[in-house]
Every structure is written in C-alpha cells, then in structure tokens.
Design a protein around this nucleic acid. Structure first.
Length: 640
DNA sequence: GAGCACTGC
C-alpha cells in the first residue's frame, strides 16, 4: 500500500475496520422477498374483487411496473396485456380484459385528472409507499377523496391498500381513519452491521481504506458496493482505486472497479451486472441509484458513507439547493439491505453508532422538498374544492404552497372566483401537458410567435435527461466537437441545433458516438415530442415553424420565463430581476464564458454557488412587454 | 471563474 500512488498520507488500511464494532445481526423490516406485490393482487382477483372493477397496483418506477406485470401474467399463465397488464408513459399494454393493472404512480395520478373518483377501479394498491414519492403522496389524498365521494354517490366502495417496507405504518393507518395493519414476514438474509468507533472526518478516505481492507481479507468472489454522493466524487474515487489496485502486493486478488450513476451511459451501467472474472473482485462505486433503482446480485459487502446528495427547496426565493447531507436511518437500512439479497452479508457504516442514532428517522417526503407548482396545477385540475385545506398526509409548508400559487398566478393559470382558487381556461390547458407549468405555458404561447414546432422540440429536450454526454476524461475532445452546434443565443437554441443535426442523420448511432450525443435520451426526446404534439393537435393549436428565425423563439421564451430573468451588473456579476439575488452562469451552459447583458433561465440551482441553468439571451424590452404589470410592481418595490 | 442525487407524467 505504501507505494500505492498519490495518496502517500494514507492511513493504514486496517484503521477503519479495526475500529469497527460489530453490532449484532440484523433482520430487515420484513419486506424483500415476501412476494406481497405479486401475490396480493392475485389473491384479490381470485376472491372475485376483480370482477367489479380493475385492481390497480402503483409503482414509483416504470421498469418495476413492467417487470411485475410480466411476472404476474406468467404466474397466471396468460398473455401479458390480457388479464394482467401495465400502463406507463409511452407504453400501454392493457385491454378490455385487463383486471390486474400495474402502473406508475404518476400515471394513475394523470388518469385521475380525467376521472377523479377512479370509477374503473375496485382496488388501488399503493406499493412502495415508504418511498413517499410526490406522486404517491398526492395519490393518498386523491384515493381518500375518491373513497368519500363514491360513498356519497352510493357507488361501489373503493378499497385502498398501502404497502410499505418499513415499520412506520402508524401514520398510514392514522391517515386512513385507523385502517387495519398486517405484517408480512420477509426472507432477507442476516446482515452483520459494523460502525466505526470514531467519527470519520473524511468519508472518502474512510471508504477507500475500507474497500482495500475488505479486499485483502475476503475471498475474491465477494463483491463490494460503496455508496457515495455524486458523479465527480465517484469518478475520482474510481481512478484512485484503480491506481492503487495496479500496485497491490503479490497474492492479493485482482480488482475491477466500476462507477455507477444515473447519467452514466446505459452500456456502461450494464457492466455492473457482469460477473467479474474468476479471482477478481468487483467493486461498485455508486450513488443512491443502487439503493432502489438498480439491484445488483452477489453483493456481500456494503460500505455506507452515510452521505447523500439531495435536493431541498427554498420557497422564499424559489431556489433549489442540492447539498451533500446525512442519510436518514431508513435510507441507511435500505443501503444495508443491499448486502443480503442472496446470502448473508456484511455492512460497514463509516460513522459511529451515536452518529447513527442522531440521523433522522425517515427521509423527508419529496412533497416537502419540491417546488409545488406542478402538484397544485394537477390538484386544481382534479377540481379539489380547496387546495389550501387539501388533506396531505405530510403537509407542505404554507410558504411552499403560497410560492406555488404565486408562480401559477404569474403564468396566468389561476384566478380567484368566489373566494376559491380555480384554474383559468389557460390553466386547464396547461394541466393537459405532462410538463412543469412554465414549459406548458411556453408551448401554449408559441403560436403567437409562430414557432410551435421549435418550441415543442426545445421543451422536449429540456424535459428529459441531458442529451449531451460529457465524459470528464475527454473534455477537450467534447468541446471541439460540440463547437458546431453552439449558438451564441444560448442553450435552448444550441439544443435545437443538436436535435436538428440528429434528425438530419436519422439518429445514426455512429454519429451520436462521434458527437457525444446520448442516443437513448435523444430517442426519448422524440417520444416526448410526439406526445406533446398530439396534445397540441387535440387543443387545436396551429402548428407553425419559425424556420431560421431564432428571434421569435427567444421572444417566446422571454414571454414565458420573464420571472426567471437576470441582468449583467457593472461589476460583471448577474442579478435576478425578481429578487436581486446574486447568480452566476452554470459551467454547463454554452454562455459560461460570455457576458450577455440580459438572459432568461429555466431555473436556479444552489451548489457551491447560485447557478442559472439553461439560458437564453433576450432583449430587456421583450421582458417588459411580456409582463408590464409585473415589472412595474418590481420597479415600485425597488424604489421603496 | 469551473459543475449536476434520484424518479415520473
């Protein structure tokens, strides 16, 4: 280890695990492998409940909905899409015969807009409720309201089953008026949990030491999963591990190190599923994507740094903050559980037991960490009588609700009618799009600027993961090849150029590779665009192209994003027009090295600094034209 | 001057 490269100050590899204390055996909260998700819908169906209406089972993720539907239809020995089917965005495999339907929570929520009492369904099963996704949280309220309404109308009762993998069932039961609780025994293998004796000041160093400690002691067939916080950290650690692994003493097994995070191209993500060659250990360095979304078999050791990068939302200045913070206890147990999927496992927690006791019990539900504009628009579209008193299981802060109402008001989506907040006709149209309200508004404004075709493309590009692939190791190459797409007018128009070039070569895979374009995400853009275009056609919008005229596209963006404007100051910094917040251009923007005098941006993100993301150069006068009242108010406020 | 956890409609 002494000759192991740059880290000469490295602590002895034994430092961490020798100071780890064993803390007994642990049995996960009776969940994995109990088969509840596949069996309960079938029991209900056998009991005849499926005859009166469809049994819905929601999932937070698309892949889960699809694979569960596949498994259950196999078990029923029926063709997928007949008795058992699934509905996810862009993919509906159901028919008139379907009685057991798996769907994403977001999809059921969207269905509810057209049918708030969910009349098609006899049972709604909300699975993975412990994850508390924003969609599942809204669905709690929606199904509860539907139950009440159906009772009032004398219709078939709606049965609701909430399935959670953690023990915090009390609040679920309480929320549903003291509903009965059933416990299911899981089949989790035992996992030994170790804590450090001392708090670790440098969790990266501690992780590195633990990995090589395990590597020197454990049989090479046993793989290690390390939880870290983000791409940059993981890439750096990957390199360090590989460097050290090159210089291990004789007799030490080989090691293959793999990074894993969501923005990694699919082909590289797949590598974590391949078994390492004999005599070689697999070490996976992952974000929390491996907590729930990706399950890797054969993991014997989990190393948990106890840290996670998570988003918070500050409603007062409309600022998203992305920060490294402590995981919750529930999240730590979830990570630990990843070590015991096939056999008994071992988890090293790189924090003390005292520190662990101070972690939050549960992760704060997403609904309390987000901008609520989309959720409120959806609730209003559901004709919820009063969104201010909506029965949330975990209420968002009044500030967050107020900020969302203000945002919807600025977009012209809501109005007061007889003391009630209701949607305007524009707001109702906005709710038809599966988009953030500001993007729906951009589309609905576009006919005025004769650029709907271009705006559809831009909005689609912005609503999927980045189509631009930026491998850090090939930065110079990326920059030189990307030059040809760059528009001096900003990121929106640059993305439009990339899309047009992609279409010109009909999505050629080689072209994507050469140009560092993520082909898979680009295909998704096409799907999104087609869906959005369909909605426009249904709303009878004229579909026009501005062709080479980019000024109209920028005018359209100025009119929909006027509340997200910033101006260059004499000292070279930027200040937002809305709240005079000091902001900077995000390094990922094509305008990073430029100093346009006036821009609009999609959003603010606070990491090390407060950054504007996805910028478009605009004229200051356009902004004033877009919302004269708003800017008059701002001017008055500034004078006072 | 220098960066972006994870889902989903």
């Amino acid at each position: 280890m002494g000759k192991a490269g740059p880290k000469s100050k490295q602590a002895s590899p034994a430092a961490v695990s020798q100071s780890c204390e064993e803390k007994g055996w642990f049995r996960e909260h009776g969940e994995t492998g109990s088969g509840k998700t596949t069996q309960i819908p079938q029991y209900l169906y056998e009991a005849g409940i499926g005859r009166q209406g469809i049994i819905a089972v929601t999932q937070p993720r698309r892949v889960a909905a699809i694979s569960l539907a596949t498994r259950v239809s196999d078990e029923k020995r029926t063709e997928l899409g007949k008795l058992v089917g699934y509905t996810v965005r862009f993919d509906d495999l159901t028919s008139d015969e379907t009685r057991i339907k798996f769907l994403t929570d977001g999809m059921l929520l969207r269905e509810a807009i057209g049918d708030p009492i969910l009349r098609k369904y006899s049972v709604v099963i909300l699975d993975e409720a412990h994850e508390r996704t924003i969609h599942t949280d809204v669905l709690f309220g929606v199904v509860k309201a539907a139950q009440k309404k159906r009772k009032e109308l004398g219709k078939l009762p709606l049965k609701v089953i909430v399935m959670s993998a953690t023990m915090d069932v009390d609040q679920f039961s309480q929320y549903f008026n003291g509903a009965p609780v059933l416990y299911l025994e899981g089949r989790q293998h035992p996992i030994q949990v170790f804590y450090t004796k001392q708090p670790q000041s440098d969790y990266l160093q501690a992780a590195l030491v633990s990995v090589f400690q395990i590597h020197q002691e454990a049989p090479s067939s046993q793989d290690i999963l390390v939880f870290l916080t983000g791409q940059e950290e993981i890439e750096a650690m990957t390199k360090t591990c590989r460097d050290i692994a090159k210089h291990l003493p004789d007799g030490c097994p080989q090691m293959t190190v793999m990074p894993l995070y969501a923005s990694l191209p699919y082909s590289q993500q797949l590598r974590v599923f391949q078994a390492a060659p004999k005599g070689c250990r697999k070490v996976i360095l992952s974000t929390n994507i491996a907590e729930t979304s990706i399950t890797i078999s054969g993991i014997k050791y989990v190393v948990d740094t106890g840290m996670v990068k998570a988003k918070k939302y500050n409603p007062e200045i409309g600022l998203e903050v992305l920060a490294v913070q402590r995981v919750s206890k529930a999240q730590a147990w979830q990570r630990t559980g990843r070590a015991g999927r096939e056999d008994s496992g071992i988890c090293y927690r790189l924090y003390t037991e005292d520190e662990f006791e101070k972690f939050d019990k549960m992760t704060v539900p997403e609904i309390q960490r987000c901008n609520l504009a989309s959720v409120l628009l959806q609730l209003l579209a559901l004709r919820i009588p009063n969104i201010l008193t909506f029965d949330f299981m975990s209420k968002p802060s009044p500030d967050a609700i107020q900020a969302a109402i203000e945002q919807l008001d600025l977009l012209g989506a809501v109005e007061q009618k007889e003391d009630q907040l209701v949607l305007t006709p524009l707001g109702r149209k906005m709710a038809a799009f599966p988009l953030e309200p500001k993007f729906s508004k951009t589309i609905l404004l576009s006919p005025k600027f004769h650029c709907t075709e271009e705006i559809l493309t831009i909005v689609s590009l912005l609503s999927v993961d980045s189509v631009l692939y930026n491998p850090p190791a090939r930065r110079d190459e990326v920059q030189s090849v990307r030059k040809k797409f760059i528009s001096s007018e900003g990121d929106h128009l640059t993305l439009l150029n990339v899309y047009r070039a992609f279409k010109n070569v009909s999505g050629n895979k080689e072209w994507c590779k050469e140009n560092f374009v993520n082909g898979r995400n680009m295909m998704l853009v096409s799907d999104v665009r087609a869906q959005l275009r369909d909605i426009c056609v249904k709303l009878s919008m004229p579909m026009e192209s501005s062709r080479s005229d980019t000024a109209n596209i920028r005018r359209c963006l100025a009119h929909s994003l006027f509340m997200n404007a910033a101006e260059l100051q004499p000292d070279g910094t930027y200040s937002t027009v809305n709240s005079h917040q000091l902001v900077a251009i995000h390094p990922s923007s094509v305008l990073f090295h430029c100093k346009p005098s006036c821009v609009v941006y999609n959003g603010l993100l606070h990491t090390n600094k407060c950054y504007m993301r996805d910028l478009c150069v605009v004229d200051a006068e356009w902004l004033y034209d877009a919302a004269p009242d708003y800017f008059r108010r701002k001017l008055r406020a500034a004078k006072n």
